[in-house]
Design a protein around this nucleic acid. Structure first.
Lengths: 207, 207
DNA sequence: GTCGGCATACCGACCGGTCGGTGTCCAAGG
DNA sequence: CCTTGGACACCGACCGGTCGGTATGCCGAC
């Protein structure tokens, strides 16, 4: 019977013909999010993707690698997005609000990746974990910079350390996956705007 | 050689003599928090606790049971605390502030339990998971009640759904474990008060 | 013919859970 | 006081099964 397809490896097509690494990543993401990293066997992943273990270990060095690639993709995308918003020349409140709302929307759009991030990060090998953390910290620092800018200009309260506010906010963001359900009453953008408002208003100088 | 101790089973003592179930729970908590539920073998737990597998399966029906007991303990304590604060006759803002600050402090005091909650809940058997979720929802509903009370009285803004605010806040709380480190510059209570302030100020009617 | 891109068969390690047995304490009988 | 018996707490060897990873072979393209 042989796996259908006489196509070239890199060639795109319908769904079946999508590049093997992409299919693997895609199905691994879904399974990791649904059952957790440890509970998902390599066998399940390759079956879902319609290939065999040989194929997987041809493209990825280990099961860990699969997880790491998922992280890296998410981090790259979020970092890119933040950088683009934060460095515009709009007023500070708008930039922070947009950054906050955007990260919520993108977290909801990719709820699976978000869930994995939350639950499985500590299962990565120590060095890969370190790499992820470093990237993550850079992201947080960029975000914190926006808050500190507003504190320096007097727009934001100064009685709350900026890093506490950052951790406060990203805690909320990371936990979206535990309550947000598609098809609910709120769209991703609505939640994003609510969250952004709550953040900005929490930052108003006390009076 | 025989396990030292001619004490009666229930009898308390130093550390070695603490009741076996307690010791198991204690070490299981630490190990689960450090390495995750799936990555921790029953063998490791019983070795850390200084007993054998036989002893563990004498007191707990399964590895899942161990995890469930840890959850249940935390939930009972937090629910008790919230109920006590929420039903006092202090002004609303004080009650909500105290509830918020308290849950942060208790989450930090038991960072391990908190970490486990975050990472391992989905590894419980479905029925136990359901039980935990139900208890958790009751807790959130009680908390939400406080916010709705303030919205009804005009003290709090009404343009943000109370349940969104609750999820926003508890996201932050659940994520304390990913950044708070003992020995840092902030005490648990300081963080709690910061978080409570941020929540209360985010709830001020917009102006 | 040889090289990338897979498939297939298989290995060794480990893991949760079980189960027959053992030591200890206590209560009752003599 | 000593014996007996049996409940309770625990021991530790063992088992079936699973999993990540590997070794090897095949096959079409160049």
């Amino acid at each position: 019977m042989t796996r259908a397809s006489t196509r070239k490896p890199g060639e795109a097509g319908g769904d079946d013909q999508a590049a093997v690494p992409r299919r693997l990543l895609e199905h691994a993401t879904k399974l990791f999010a649904k059952k957790g990293f440890d509970r998902t066997s390599v066998q399940e992943i390759v079956e879902a993707a319609g290939v065999t273990k040989g194929a997987m270990y041809h493209y990825f060095g280990s099961k860990d690698d699969l997880l790491y690639e998922i992280y890296a993709r998410v981090l790259r995308e979020q970092t890119r997005q933040l950088e683009s918003v934060a460095s515009s020349d709009a007023p500070l409140r708008e930039r922070l609000g947009a950054a906050a709302s955007d990260v919520v929307v993108s977290s909801i759009d990719n709820l699976d990746d978000n869930t994995i991030f939350l639950q499985s990060m500590h299962q990565l090998s120590p060095d890969k974990q370190k790499a992820v953390r470093a990237e993550r910290r850079k992201y947080h620092e960029r975000f914190r910079g926006l808050i500190e800018e507003g504190q320096a200009s007097g727009e934001f309260r100064t009685d709350k350390p900026a890093d506490v506010v950052v951790d406060f906010f990203f805690g909320s963001v990371h936990h979206l996956g535990s309550w947000y359900r598609r098809g609910g009453t709120l769209s991703a953008r609505q939640v994003g705007d609510h969250y952004a408002d709550l953040l900005l208003d929490a930052l108003r100088p006390p009076g």
